[in-house]
Simulated assay, not measured.
Amino acid sequence: MWPQQTPSLTPGEQAVERFARDEPLKFATLTGAEIAARTETSDATVARTAQKLGFANVREMKACCASRVQEQADLQHVLQTRLEALRTHGTEDDGPSGESRTMTSVLTAAAGLVLGAESSIHWPAAAEAAAAIAAAPRAFIYGLGTAYCFAQYAELEFARIGIVSRGITGSGHTNAHAVFQIDAADAVLVLAPRVIFADVHRFIEAAARKGARVFVIAQASLPPQLHELGVLHLRMPSSGGGAATEAVPTVSLIDALVAEIATLQPERALDARAQAQAYRDEFSR
């Protein structure tokens, strides 16, 4: 979250802060050295500015800028940004040419997002999420809009390793009913890969207040009040300004959680797979 009051900054630090405010997308997607070059400062000044503004490091400040862009972006703007990224990539001399260039550019960008998850995700929190889901009597997976498609995929994959799970979506009274059914012993996985909308925020907060373990997969930073409630953040790399969407890294992280849960309770996972296969065989006759 961007500080409400700007602390005392040197002229160089003011240049970095102004660049982040005026060009949040560029700030989020440039390296520290590139930001220093754009603002005519130094890497040390960029790092010092981030700390003075209350961020742990430059990466956290960049993530905040990315979330600001995503909060403001509607679907049309998202597509426009992707098309611009593809046009920029199309001016490069290397790589494939012709009809395949657009598709290979998207695949390359998607692979970059997956690889970027290695550094963006706090892996102890991911391991804690896997352990909590494995031990909970039920797992609820919440997603709004496109994220509900990811929630349905997670529900299917969790069920196939023996996890009693339920994919849920909605807002208003639908969310109220969903939270009503959640118990303190349950685990809740919230998928908000691009934006944490107000309805999603309210659902997270209400589920956490009931005592359930809540884990959020999101690019955007979590508000402090959610951290105070014990909500853990699995931060995805920013897809802002790129040719690929957040879909591939989100599904990849779900697959990673499924694999980790299966290793924690392999007998249950294998038994569930055997039962699922038995029903497949029966209905294939």
Rank of each mutant, 00 (worst) to 15 (best):
L79G: 07
R166W: 02
A36R: 12
G211C: 04
G98T: 12
T174I: 09
R194Y: 12
V251A: 15
G240C: 03
L234H: 01
I35Y: 02
A243T: 06
G211D: 01
H177I: 05
E267H: 06
L253Y: 05
V190W: 02
V179Q: 11
A247Y: 07
V58E: 01
T45H: 00
S238Q: 04
A110I: 03
I217C: 08
Y142D: 14
T169Y: 03
T174H: 03
R87V: 03
A126K: 05
A56D: 15
F197G: 06
G240V: 02
Q181I: 04
I217T: 10
Q72F: 03
A15K: 15
L107K: 14
L113C: 08
G170Q: 06
G143V: 04
A110T: 00
L83Q: 02
E157F: 01
Y153W: 09
S119C: 04
P137R: 10
N175A: 03
E260V: 06
P237S: 09
L253S: 03
R68N: 01
N57R: 11
S67C: 09
L53T: 05
Q152I: 03
T91C: 08
H173F: 08
L79I: 13
R38Y: 05
A36I: 02
P124W: 07
G112K: 00
D74W: 10
L115D: 12
D22P: 03
R213V: 02
A132D: 11
D183P: 02
A125T: 09
R166A: 12
Q219S: 10
S119W: 08
N57M: 08
R160W: 00
T104D: 02
V195Y: 04
R87P: 01
S97D: 14
K26I: 01
R273H: 14
D43L: 12
M103H: 13
A36N: 02
M236P: 06
G145H: 06
S67H: 09
S239C: 11
R166K: 15
A256K: 13
R273L: 14
D93T: 07
E99L: 14
Q4G: 07
K52G: 13
G162P: 01
A130P: 00
A262M: 05
E118P: 03
A50N: 03
V216I: 03
E118H: 13
L113T: 01
L115E: 10
S8N: 12
T29K: 11
G172D: 07
V78N: 00
R87S: 08
F215G: 00
G143F: 02
R194Q: 14
T146A: 14
T6P: 05
F180I: 01
L257H: 11
Y148D: 11
Q5F: 12
A136K: 12
R101G: 04
A247C: 09
A178E: 07
D94A: 10
A206F: 06
D22G: 05
A129F: 04
E34F: 04
A130Y: 00
A33K: 08
V164I: 09
